[in-house]
Design a protein around this nucleic acid. Structure first.
Length: 310
DNA sequence: AAGTATACCAACCGCCATAAA
DNA sequence: GTTTATGGCGGTTGGTATACT
């Protein structure tokens, strides 16, 4: 009982790899490649299970591995992607060449521990704090967001209300669908989309008055009241909830959203501190860029990044 | 200086999806 | 259709280095 199926031979070694073992594995893989990991240990003369060899090679020995501290750019990307997809480490790692899921996971776990131990530095305004307090029962955004994926559409709205018990629900949409068939007329299509689904003109804005109350355009308020937001919840996978304060599209078709969103501690933060919006290119399967330059071919899901101050 | 607590991270474990038998 | 083998993934652990008292 007890032994893992791939390691049920006796005499398998475990624990840290010695330099000699590394050398054997490197020599074998570089000359023969790896067709089947379960055959590697025997052929390479190693007392390990195939799974252990695979892990060692992928996470440490393969030649294109990147080691050392994460750059600020890498950190930002990790934080953004984690905000979008949660603990899907392999997915996140696929956007950081040479980095492994294990490394990113380790980084995140130690990083998040630091943040929890030394919580909430100055970045919250009174506004975000008060909203955060209203939602203090919101304790596990990532898990709940992932659970959300598995629900049928009929119950999504209900779950959404549990997830985001705000006076103003977050505004989420799939810009790929929003701009479907835009064919260059991005500005007009987005305008139409916003008008149809939210009643919000793209030049209208939300504002915050001196009492830190949100002031909405009448059209947006009525859209919220009529329960039509968010309009396109089927494709929520790569989204993070944001609360739109203003929305505008300039003549080049570049959209700007000023928002609040949740950080990794589930606090609402002012996204203006980090104005980058990432754009998920669904066709290519990677992030498209920091600013939104909508084209009919690369439209995907809006992502937003966490403030760089975190 | 010595003992203890904490941080880090490589490696392991169990689960799952897929492919082969 | 069922069973078995394998690779991939995310959660977790435990050994070691570092910080703290």
């Amino acid at each position: 009982m007890g032994h893992h199926s791939c390691c049920n031979q006796q005499k398998v070694k475990r624990g840290l790899w010695s330099p000699e073992e590394d050398e054997k594995l490197i020599r074998y893989i570089t000359t023969h490649g790896y067709g089947c990991w379960s055959e590697v240990p025997e052929k390479a003369g190693l007392q390990r299970c195939g799974k252990s060899c695979r892990l060692r090679w992928i996470n440490y020995l393969r030649p294109d591995i990147r080691r050392g501290r994460f750059t600020p750019e890498e950190e930002k990307l990790i934080i953004s992607l984690h905000g979008a997809v949660g603990n899907r480490w392999a997915h996140i790692a696929s956007h950081l060449p040479g980095r492994t899921d294990n490394e990113i996971k380790n980084y995140w776990n130690s990083w998040i521990k630091k943040k929890i131990r030394k919580p909430s530095s100055a970045s919250s305004t009174n506004i975000t704090t008060s909203i955060s307090e209203q939602n203090s029962q919101f304790t596990n955004a990532q898990n709940q967001q992932m659970d959300f994926l598995n629900q049928d559409l009929a119950t999504k709205r209900q779950i959404q209300d549990t997830l985001f018990p705000l006076p103003c629900p977050p505004f989420m949409f799939d810009i790929g669908l929003a701009l479907e068939g835009a064919n260059g007329n991005v500005d007009g299509k987005m305008d139409q989309f916003l008008q149809e689904n939210t009643g919000l003109m793209n030049t209208e804005t939300w504002q915050v008055n001196q009492n830190q109350e949100m002031i909405q355009p009448t059209s947006f308020t009525s859209a919220l009241d009529s329960n039509c937001l968010p309009p396109l919840m089927e494709n929520i996978e790569s989204m993070v909830p944001i609360e739109v304060q203003s929305c505008s599209i300039n003549v080049e078709g570049k959209m700007t959203l000023d928002c609040l969103q949740r950080n990794e501690l589930n606090e609402w933060v002012d996204i203006q501190q980090c104005p980058n919006f990432y754009f998920w290119d669904q066709a290519a399967g990677h992030l498209g860029g920091h600013d939104i330059y909508p084209t009919s071919s690369n439209m995907g899901t809006i992502l937003s990044s966490y403030p760089s101050s975190l």
